[in-house]
Structure formats: structure tokens, C-alpha cells
Computed example of a mutant assay.
Amino acid sequence: MPWFLYLIECADGSLYTGIATDVEARFVAHASGKGARYTRARKPVRVMASFELAGRSEALRAEYRVKRLTAQQKRALIAGDFSIGSLLPQTEASDEE
């Protein structure tokens, strides 16, 4: 089952990063106040981007790395200036090719 990393823009202009199997349903949860504490305190406005990943563990690794980016770097990721794959470590299989 694919997992997704998503970035939500909040009313104060900040970006929230999370993971889910259904981004639309997760956004609805955030918007209704049932999401993360961060989005309960700042009204979620829209999903800015979502990236499909192979599974939960890859999504968690991507989330960890994206959350450490600056807001400017996150906006560059959203704009497509670099890929989500460039943030993830290369797998052993990739190293052997």
C-alpha cells in the first residue's frame, strides 16, 4: 500500500508536514480539528503537495528529513526545484547498480 508525504499550508503561512495513506481524508481531519495539534492551532488552508512513497517506513524517513528543511527549502520542494528522492538515502540495491 502506498504512503504519501504531504505538505499543508496553514492560515498563518506556515507549512505542516505529515504522512498518510489517504491525503484528502487526512486533510479533512486536520481541517475539522481532529488532526495534529499544530494544525488545530493554525487553520489548514490547502494541501500544497503530496509525494507517493513505497511504504510507511520510507514515508517516515522522508517526513523526518522534510521536517528539518527550512520553510524556503520546503517551498522549493513544492515548486519541484528538487525531488523528494534526493532527500532519502540511497538503498543498498541502488548502490549496487
Rank of each mutant, 00 (worst) to 15 (best):
M1E: 15
W3E: 14
L5T: 03
L7N: 03
S14P: 01
S14F: 07
S14C: 04
L15G: 02
Y16P: 02
T17F: 04
T17C: 11
A20R: 06
A20V: 08
T21K: 15
T21I: 11
D22T: 10
V23M: 00
E24Y: 00
R26C: 07
R26T: 09
F27T: 00
H30D: 03
A31N: 10
S32K: 15
S32M: 12
G35S: 03
R37M: 11
T39C: 08
R40E: 13
R40K: 14
R42A: 02
R42T: 01
R42G: 01
K43G: 08
V47F: 02
M48T: 11
M48G: 03
S50Q: 10
S50D: 05
S50T: 02
F51P: 04
F51T: 05
R56G: 13
R56I: 14
S57F: 13
S57H: 13
A59L: 14
A59T: 14
L60N: 09
L60T: 12
R61T: 14
A62K: 11
A62R: 11
E63T: 10
E63M: 08
V66G: 08
A71F: 02
A71L: 10
A71V: 12
Q72F: 13
Q72M: 11
Q73I: 05
K74M: 10
K74Q: 09
R75C: 08
A76F: 06
L77W: 04
G80N: 05
S83D: 14
S83G: 12
I84V: 14
I84N: 08
G85R: 11
G85W: 12
S86G: 09
L88Q: 07
Q90C: 06
A93P: 00
A93I: 02
A93D: 09
E97Y: 09
